[in-house]
Design a protein around this nucleic acid. Sequence first.
DNA 1: CTTGACCTTCCTATCGTGGGAAGCTCCACA
DNA 2: TGTGGAGCTTCCCACGATAGGAAGGTCAAG
Lengths: 167, 167
Amino acid sequence: MMQETKMSTGWAMNIGEAAQASGVSAKMIRYYESISLIPPATRSDAGYRHYIASEVHTLRFIRRARDLGFSIESITRLLALWRDRARNSAEVKQVALDHVAELKHKIIELQQMVRTLEHLAHHCHGDDRPECPIIDELAASVEASPAATRSRKERKLAPLTEWRIAS
Amino acid sequence: MMQETKMSTGWAMNIGEAAQASGVSAKMIRYYESISLIPPATRSDAGYRHYIASEVHTLRFIRRARDLGFSIESITRLLALWRDRARNSAEVKQVALDHVAELKHKIIELQQMVRTLEHLAHHCHGDDRPECPIIDELAASVEASPAATRSRKERKLAPLTEWRIAS
DNA sequence: CTTGACCTTCCTATCGTGGGAAGCTCCACA
DNA sequence: TGTGGAGCTTCCCACGATAGGAAGGTCAAG
């Protein structure tokens, strides 16, 4: 992108320098190019990639967005909005708030795990005796657990009491 | 494992039934076997895997541990402790609390992202105008940002002002 | 001209999960 | 007894984002 700018400035960094300047590793810069998150870099006669300041700027944008947890897919949208001078800030805000909602969802899941584990650990002596409510909880026999089957597709199935006799 | 139990009961479920009963998909049961998290299942003459109640119990254990966010590696340890009747509960507690620490670390990271994003979103009009502090923050030019280079290995490098002239 | 730091492409691995193809088995029903 | 379909087998591929490494070319300083 911005070929003309590149031509007009004449400045260029190679991939290692661009990595250094942007905080994105050379490996990831090549990867981003391969998945078309960024356009193909111009090349020197020897095939070395060259980056001008505006491209490094884009890489830094990506790096910051990654640091905020945005997926590559979201970053694609954010980059398009960044380049779109006629954008609606509402769209940007939407992307950001959708992401916030996802993050909060994850946080709640993790907090639930922590709560359960801390509760169990609190009741565990943590000494040389084998008794352990943590193990007990994991090993608990389930009388009726809807949660245990929640995520699988429905299928025609035999009642649990109808196990077949082996061999 | 527990071959003799299997022999003594004679009961067996096939993989679909075991999946149903344990909450672990058939695909994952095969995967867990392939990575030796669980021992190879016994097979029928036709090659079908058979699972007895104690094996399903193990699968349910794994499922619960996964639900609490434990890695396969940690589950390997937990399973060993479960089977070890002479275990020290201290070891179990250690595995659990190490995991809690990891979870909390992740939570803090995510919360930091949320905080930043909500702060930015709060200052974004979110209307049809292009001005947007979210985009501005991502696009910000960095005067001096130690964070931007924090995770990369040190390398001999030219000062940023010494970019080479292209072509 | 040599050396070594850097670049190139290509392949591999991570982690846990799902999807699907090709082919075999089992069982119920006609 | 034949057939259809659900279920099983193995094998391969994909994800998302990243890192590591091998083999070979390039560049610049000494």
